[in-house]
């Protein structure tokens, strides 16, 4: 059976390199962080390595990457005055290239008030408390435009979330969730993305479920997908009831999953099929 024979050896691709716009080389694997204790072997891999040639190619050139339409829309929103304060993001934060560089790699993180915040929380905090504008929905197009525009400023920088100190209790909860078997199919994230990455579930080539490329473009949905939206989809596929996008639970899971990619480089905005 030819397909089975070839898929059994279908590890991440070995003969391709993510070089963006012909100049910026982004490493797509890294030594596994010590906290994983060998659970995925020595190496962590970007989801890019598990996709087909055409999909990989789209992420190599910003003109071919459909997410850049959304990045442009995000930059436009950055410069647009809104709300009762009649201020734009740029009025306070100036150039997005400078003020937002590196932020995506460190999120989610614990605020001085002791809450765990994702990028979306920071954006809506400024909108509601500093601009007097309406918050954006977690999975709204406006929010994905902005998180893509902010995220790309960290492209090529290593994921560097904090998992000790104040973050530790959140990280522990996220870890518990990662190994919990949800739904009628009784499957955990680890069952698919730790025990079986590189293998096929029907025609799906399982990756390690890394989030260093989010928000990303999904060809199947013809649109941008947020990290929490992907989590919702994966729990639903266990015949389970997912937590809400933006929920405390999914922010904890986001922190933990981000930490499984410690050392991988930010690829926002990635392309998947």
């Amino acid at each position: 059976f030819a397909f089975i024979a070839s898929s059994a050896s279908a590890e991440p691709v070995k003969d391709d390199q993510l070089i963006v716009n012909g100049e910026e080389e982004i490493a797509t694997e890294a030594p596994a962080p010590p906290h994983l204790d060998g659970a995925v072997g020595d190496t962590i891999y970007s989801g890019w390595l598990f996709r087909d040639t055409e999909t990989r190619a789209m992420q190599k050139d910003d003109f071919d990457n459909p997410m850049f339409l959304f990045v442009d829309a995000g930059i436009e929103a950055w410069n647009t005055r809104e709300g009762t304060a009649e201020k734009s993001c740029a009025d306070c934060h100036n150039e997005i290239e400078d003020s937002m560089k590196g932020l995506r790699a460190e999120l989610p993180k614990v605020t001085p008030e002791g809450e765990l915040w994702s990028l979306e929380n920071y954006v809506n905090d400024c909108r509601t408390n500093r601009m007097g504008a309406e918050p954006w929905g977690w999975n709204s197009q406006e929010m994905k435009n902005m998180t893509a525009a902010i995220g790309v400023q960290s492209r090529g920088m290593p994921v560097a979330v904090e998992i000790d100190g104040d973050a530790a209790p959140f990280w522990e909860k996220g870890k518990d969730m990662y190994y919990t078997r949800y739904g009628q199919l009784e499957m955990s994230c680890a069952n698919c993305h730790e025990d079986n990455f590189g293998n096929y579930i029907r025609s799906d080539h399982l990756s390690q479920g890394q989030i260093n490329g989010f928000p990303l473009y999904r060809l199947k949905d013809q649109g941008a997908v947020s990290t929490h939206q992907r989590f919702v989809g994966c729990v639903r596929d266990t015949r389970g009831v997912p937590f809400e996008a933006g929920s405390q639970e999914f922010r904890e899971l986001e922190l933990y999953v981000a930490s499984r990619g410690l050392g991988l480089l930010v690829e926002t905005p990635a392309v998947r099929h």
């Binding site: 919990t180 078997r181 949800y182 739904g183 009628q184 199919l185 009784e186 499957m187 069952n191 025990d195 079986n196 919702v232 729990v235 639903r236 596929d237 015949r239 389970g240 009831v241 997912p242």
Partner: peptide, 20 residues
């Protein structure tokens, strides 16, 4: 990893088929 094909519980956060 194999799901129970004739099993109705107990499960953690079960949903009605794939409706979430």
């Amino acid at each position: 990893f194999m799901p129970g094909m004739y099993k109705v519980g107990p499960f953690i956060r079960p949903g009605v088929a794939y409706t979430a």
